[in-house]
């Protein structure tokens, strides 16, 4: 595909999220992707197709996969990337994981490795995946846990104090408590939607960013962090806070890369 025709959102995903989140996650968990005996499987929030193209390689020849994403450009990119043989087996459809239009118990297994970053999204997404997965089928979902990017929260805390935004600090604490997910919350969510034989794996890998700006502008950070704290800080105060964090990273990690880590919680359960 021509780079010049690639939409900004697709490029951001491929160069940011896919490189820093999807690939490391797939490297660690490819063995855990559900094995499907039957005909159909679901890959939700498929983005540019990295997960579904890897998954389908291990699925029986007759298994077909419905690959969903809410972004048409991402789906177009995914269509371009799949091989001719895979084109017959992967069906791309524009749809969100939290509002699937499929009937109950249609798919033999379902996977979602993107798009679930908050507790509410996990509850809704897992609920929908469990609903459309057939009895006995596996559901697999991944999301960043609350232990990811710890250094960022220390810096954010420092920035808010430095700016005198004590109310925002309180709101942020409440927001983190309410939205970030740890292993226990993931298990609770999976149980609440009727999943059994639960396995929760934690996958951790290191990331390095060249500067504070690189870190804050990374699509991965914007997808995973911003939803958690943007609601706590007023729009008029964000620029100052971001500027402080970027300068702090550039100061504390002067002449070094900003090394941090991300941890993914991988929830695997079976629908009774």
């Amino acid at each position: 595909m021509s780079q010049s025709l690639e939409s900004p959102v697709v490029r951001a995903h491929r160069e940011g999220v896919e490189r820093l989140w999807t690939r490391p996650l797939l490297d660690a968990c490819a063995e855990l992707l559900p094995r499907v005996e039957g005909k159909t499987a679901l890959s939700a929030e498929s983005r540019c197709g990295a997960v579904v193209t890897q998954w389908i390689e291990d699925l029986p020849e007759e298994t077909r996969v419905m690959a969903l994403d809410s972004n048409a450009s991402m789906l177009d990119c995914a269509r371009e990337r799949v091989s001719e043989a895979q084109q017959r087996r992967i069906f791309f459809v524009q749809q969100r994981v939290n509002a699937l239009s499929y009937a109950d118990e249609v798919f033999e297994a379902s996977v979602c490795l993107h798009g679930l970053v908050s507790r509410r999204q996990l509850d809704e997404g897992l609920g929908e995946l469990a609903r459309v997965t057939a009895s006995g089928g596996q559901v697999m979902a991944a999301l960043p846990t609350s232990t990811s990017f710890e250094a960022f929260y220390d810096l954010l805390d420092e920035a808010l104090r430095a700016q005198g935004l004590h109310e925002a600090l309180e709101r942020l604490g409440e927001l983190k408590e309410r939205t970030l997910v740890d292993a226990a919350a993931a298990v609770r969510s999976a149980r609440s939607v009727g999943l059994h034989d639960l396995v929760v794996e934690r996958v951790r890998w290191d990331l390095s960013f060249g500067s504070g700006g690189d870190f804050l502008q990374s699509p991965l950070i914007q997808e995973t962090f911003f939803p958690h704290w943007s609601g706590a800080i007023r729009g008029s105060e964000r620029e100052a806070v971001l500027g402080y964090i970027a300068r702090a990273i550039d100061t504390y990690w002067r002449d070094r890369t900003f090394d941090t880590h991300v941890e993914a919680g991988l929830v695997i359960g079976r629908r009774l």
Binding site: K39, T40, A41, R64, V65, M66, F91, Y102, A103, V106, F107
Partner: peptide, 11 residues
């Protein structure tokens, strides 16, 4: 049929 299954008269 769609991977979501054929749409039948009986649903």
């Amino acid at each position: 049929a769609s991977p979501a299954g054929p749409v039948l008269r009986r649903g």
